[in-house]
């Protein structure tokens, strides 16, 4: 390890003899790769999830597609997209959007489906229309589960965005692939780049998680907060959502078969 260049690098200077730009630049690029796909994924997955959950049909399909999404190797996709569209942001956006959709879609669907039928029934009984039930009852009540999905997606996208550097773009993946190319076994600078970049990605992931947690507090209705807090305490967010969804989907597929 070679620590002498770390501080200047973090402060914005290029890491000497490697061509790796300063961390602020990398961070900016990285965030750029993250935000666009996330917004796209939200715009696609939430309406679809809400609609499928609200009408209560096609859920098995939605969940199975989403679960299948887990198995898709993002590295392969980004390479194919790169070959198809050549350099530029498009391959990254396609890959990361595709990655971000499944958890949001599944959780939105599950969240809406999870709403106690009696509450839905009571709302209908009070004369709320389908749209009003969705807006006034289902969405607020599904919010904690939806947000858990958003957090899972965000964290995955933050981590996977490092792959952008493999197809010649920047971001925090840049020092990682540069380090790998130089060879961390032999070169202390390469090792330093790798270690620091990994830690930075990890910190960024955790920060994103926490930040979305705060956003969630603002979005989720106070009345649902306590229950939700309990869930959080019992089993913190991303993994919990994953376990939850998978369990449900296994029930789903069992039912459908």
């Amino acid at each position: 390890m070679n620590w002498e260049h770390v501080l200047p690098w973090l402060a914005g200077q290029e890491y000497p003899n490697t061509g790796v730009p300063g961390v602020p630049t990398l961070l900016y690029e990285h965030l750029l790769y993250v935000v666009v796909p996330l917004v796209l994924a939200l715009a696609i997955a939430i309406p679809v999830g809400l609609w499928v959950g609200h009408i209560g049909k096609g859920g098995t399909l939605a969940i199975n597609i989403a679960n299948g999404g887990r198995a898709i190797p993002s590295l392969g996709i980004i390479i194919i997209a790169f070959i198809a569209f050549s350099a530029g942001f498009i391959p990254v956006y396609i890959t990361l959007t595709a990655m971000a959709i499944p958890p949001i879609l599944t959780n939105t669907y599950v969240g809406v489906r999870e709403v106690d039928p009696e509450i839905r029934d009571a709302a209908a009984g009070m004369g709320l229309s389908g749209w009003e039930i969705l807006r006034g009852v289902e969405i607020p009540m599904a919010m904690p589960v939806i947000m858990a999905g958003v957090r899972t997606s965000a964290v995955q996208v933050v981590a996977t965005a490092t792959l952008a550097a493999y197809i010649g773009l920047g971001g925090l993946g840049r020092p990682i692939f540069t380090g790998l190319a130089i060879g961390p076994q032999f070169n202390p600078d390469a090792k330093t780049l790798l270690v620091v970049a990994c830690i930075l990605v990890a910190i960024l992931a955790v920060l994103t998680e926490q930040l979305l947690g705060l956003a969630e507090r603002a979005i989720v209705p106070t009345g649902l907060m306590r229950k939700h807090e309990q869930e959080r305490r019992g089993s913190p967010p991303p993994g919990a959502a994953a376990a939850d969804t998978a369990q449900r989907s296994s029930e789903q597929s069992a039912v459908s078969a």
Binding site: A159, P184, K191, L194, C198, A202, V206, G239
Partner: peptide, 23 residues
């Protein structure tokens, strides 16, 4: 649970761990 929650956040792309473990 909290520990694994944080860890789960960190290595979501195994890339990170792969490199960590590679060190």
């Amino acid at each position: 649970l909290n520990l694994t929650g944080v860890l789960f956040t960190i290595p979501s792309a195994a890339l990170i761990i792969a490199v960590f473990a590679f060190l």
